[in-house]
Design a protein around this nucleic acid. Structure first.
Lengths: 162, 162
DNA sequence: GCTGAAAATTATGCATT
DNA sequence: AATGCATAATTTTCAGC
């Protein structure tokens, strides 16, 4: 649990960086009416604290990955480590999360066409020992992505704005 | 379908930007043995083409969002638009994807504690007319995130490296 | 599409409040 | 923790290859 000493300014900075991570600190300063040095120090702090990561998010559609599947898996606890390692080695898998007991695994995988996707669910996954696919959904249209997520404003300590 | 004219250099640039989106173009140039101007033009092109987005990804754990749930929903087709709008308005929802017929909806939602999570699944979601939760998994540990995904090397046209 | 050189802008280190 | 200032580095502009 962190003592949260971030404030509205940090929130606004993150909002700008979310739009464009390479925006000049001085431009953020201009936009927010703050000092350039302050902005730069805040950005460094946000990154050092691990509050945000400044990164490049690849657009799968541009590379002709036209479809995706969200899949629930049940893993044999005895083979669990091996299963996770094998899944993490797969380039198709864009997201992998473990459930409470780690028996449940939730993944997202990306494919160029429905053929590849179906093959993955019907052949590739079942070929891994100890795996059971308990449910899945083909999700060709993603409306909100994880990298767009923001905490609530109130998660940033104090506020000058109403 | 794009004619893919990106090459290894673009792949390497994306790899660097993924580690740090604010790295100086001249430093990438140094690392990759290329010209600074070339790097900057490539970055601009990658962004203009929509191949990558340079952004700030917030770390939910830092803001005390300790747990998440991946949820499958079935939506009444007649109320579909309203349902999607209501879901997209929720700050908790970090990911929302539609299935083939859009009847299936797949979401991820984030919470500060399991109580809030359970309340969301047991009370908040069911209170929306036309929604049925068909499956869910609590996923406190995310091992790979969508923003870390990369296409295969061969998705970048030509290659100078073996 | 890549690179060079000068001008403009931005980032950094140090010091002050 | 925020800012001013001097210096270093980077980005931009305009050009030629």
């Amino acid at each position: 649990m962190h003592t949260n000493f971030l404030d509205t300014l940090d929130y606004q900075i993150i909002t700008e960086l979310q739009k464009n991570a390479r925006i000049a600190s001085s431009e953020i300063a201009r936009l927010l009416g703050a000092n350039e040095r302050t902005i730069r120090k805040r950005i460094d702090r946000l990154v050092d604290l691990g509050a945000v990561r400044l990164t490049a998010v690849v657009n799968p559609a541009y590379f002709n990955y036209a479809t995706a599947a969200d899949i629930f898996i049940e893993a044999d606890p005895q083979l669990e480590e091996d299963i996770i390692a094998r899944l993490l080695a797969m380039q198709e898998i864009s997201y992998l999360a473990l459930g409470q007991g780690t028996k449940e695994i939730s993944i997202e995988a990306r494919f160029k066409d429905n053929g590849a996707l179906r093959d993955f669910i019907r052949a590739v996954l079942p070929s891994i020992p100890g795996i059971k696919v308990t449910g899945y959904a083909l999700v060709p249209r993603i409306l909100r992505n994880i990298d767009e997520w923001m905490p609530k404003q109130e998660d940033f300590g104090s506020f000058s704005n109403p």
